[in-house]
Deep mutational scan, measured.
Amino acid sequence: NDEAKKEAEKLWKNNKSEDEIKERLERAGISPDEAEQWLQELR
């Protein structure tokens, strides 16, 4: 999970869309709710 979150953070810094980041997190096995929460922390 931490690995996926690091990846999400990297994508965020590269200005990827939130949808793309969420999709990537969900593919890594993170629930949509958790993915949404993680994005809010990044904002």
Rank of each mutant, 00 (worst) to 15 (best):
L25M: 07
Q40M: 13
S17C: 13
E9M: 14
L11G: 04
R27F: 10
K22W: 06
I30V: 11
E18T: 06
R27V: 07
Q40H: 11
L39I: 11
G29M: 02
W12N: 00
A4M: 14
E3W: 15
E7L: 15
Q40S: 10
K5Y: 14
E26C: 15
A28T: 04
W12P: 00
K10R: 14
R27T: 07
E9K: 12
E20T: 04
N1R: 15
E23Y: 08
R24S: 13
A8G: 04
E9N: 05
N1H: 14
W12Q: 00
A8W: 04
K5E: 02
P32E: 07
E9A: 12
D19A: 14
K22P: 00
K6F: 06
E26S: 12
N14D: 13
L39Y: 04
E23H: 07
K10A: 09
S17G: 05
E36L: 10
K10V: 11
W12S: 01
E18I: 13
R43H: 04
E26H: 13
D2S: 11
E9P: 00
D19E: 13
K5P: 01
L25A: 03
W38M: 07
E23K: 10
N14M: 14
L42H: 04
K22S: 01
L42G: 00
I21A: 02
R24I: 15
E20G: 03
I30C: 05
Q40V: 09
R27S: 11
L42I: 07
L11R: 01
E36Q: 08
K5C: 14
K10P: 01
N1K: 15
E3N: 09
E18S: 07
N14V: 05
R27A: 13
R27L: 13
E9W: 15
N14H: 07
K16N: 07
E23Q: 12
L25G: 01
G29D: 03
A4T: 06
L39R: 02
A35M: 09
E9Y: 15
L11M: 15
N14R: 05
S31R: 06
G29L: 02
R43T: 03
K13L: 09
E3H: 10
E36K: 05
D33F: 11
S17I: 04
N15Y: 08
K10M: 13
S31E: 05
A35D: 00
N14W: 11
E26T: 13
E41H: 13
N1W: 15
A28L: 15
E36P: 01
A28E: 08
E7F: 12
L25Y: 00
E3C: 15
D19Y: 09
G29V: 00
I21M: 01
K22F: 07
L11H: 04
L42K: 05
K16P: 04
W38L: 07
E3F: 11
G29Y: 02
R24W: 15
G29I: 01
S31M: 06
L11E: 03
K22A: 01
K10E: 13
A28I: 13
D2E: 12
E23R: 12
K16H: 14
E7W: 14
N15H: 10
D2G: 09
L11W: 12
G29T: 02
L42P: 01
L39A: 02
K5N: 01
E7H: 05
W12L: 04
I21D: 01
L25C: 03
A35E: 00
K16T: 12
K16L: 12
L25S: 00
D19C: 15
N15K: 09
A28V: 06
Q37V: 08
S31Q: 07
A4P: 04
E20I: 07
R43I: 08
L25W: 03
D19F: 11
E34C: 13
E34T: 12
